[in-house]
């Protein structure tokens, strides 16, 4: 793997965390997609034998600290995300970008449900989570991330 590819991946991840934290007007928060999950998706699809399950630990813990959730919650979500991507890898590889976006929509929605369950198992005062909005906007953004992230990485890798 080339140095520039590694640098590019880290920049993408950094930008995703910046976007995750970006101060927005209240209304726009409803439409906030899961930026980091998008980048993780691109990373796992791009280099499945480098970016595997281990990614769940650093990225998940950083997300937990960033969002102030219980430590470990996002580790579960990212691990689940990566595992499903690995299971569906061959299909995702052949799918066109809209089909991939559809799969992402269902995955993010499932993760929102797991998010709620995981908290509800531990605490009585689990807060409800938004189900459709984050999943929808993550799916809508996927084609762009696909082009900017995945395709660019491919091109960098080839030369």
């Amino acid at each position: 793997m080339k140095l520039q590819v590694i640098v590019y991946v880290f920049i993408m991840l950094f930008v995703a965390f910046v976007l995750e934290h970006l101060p927005l007007p209240d209304v726009l928060y409803l439409f906030q997609p899961a930026w980091v999950m998008l980048v993780v998706t691109a990373m796992v699809l791009f280099a499945p034998n480098i970016f595997g399950l281990w990614l769940a630990l650093p990225v998940g813990l950083m997300l937990d600290v960033e969002q102030g959730t219980l430590l470990g919650l996002h580790v579960i979500l990212v691990a689940f995300h990566i595992f499903v991507l690995q299971l569906l890898y061959r299909r995702m590889y052949l799918f066109n970008v809209l089909q991939q976006a559809g799969v992402l929509f269902v995955m993010i929605m499932g993760e929102q449900i797991i998010h709620y369950w995981a908290v509800a198992v531990l605490r009585e005062d689990a807060r409800p989570v938004l189900l459709v909005m984050p999943a929808l906007f993550t799916a809508v953004l996927w084609p762009w991330i696909y082009v900017v992230g995945y395709r660019t990485l491919r091109r960098l890798e080839r030369g």
Binding site: L53, A56, L57, G60, L70, L71, G72, L73, V75, I76, A79, F80, A118, V121, L122
Partner: peptide
């Protein structure tokens, strides 16, 4: 294993 460990961490 990761999920179980993460649940323990959350707890």
């Amino acid at each position: 294993v990761i999920v179980v460990l993460a649940m323990l961490l959350m707890w």
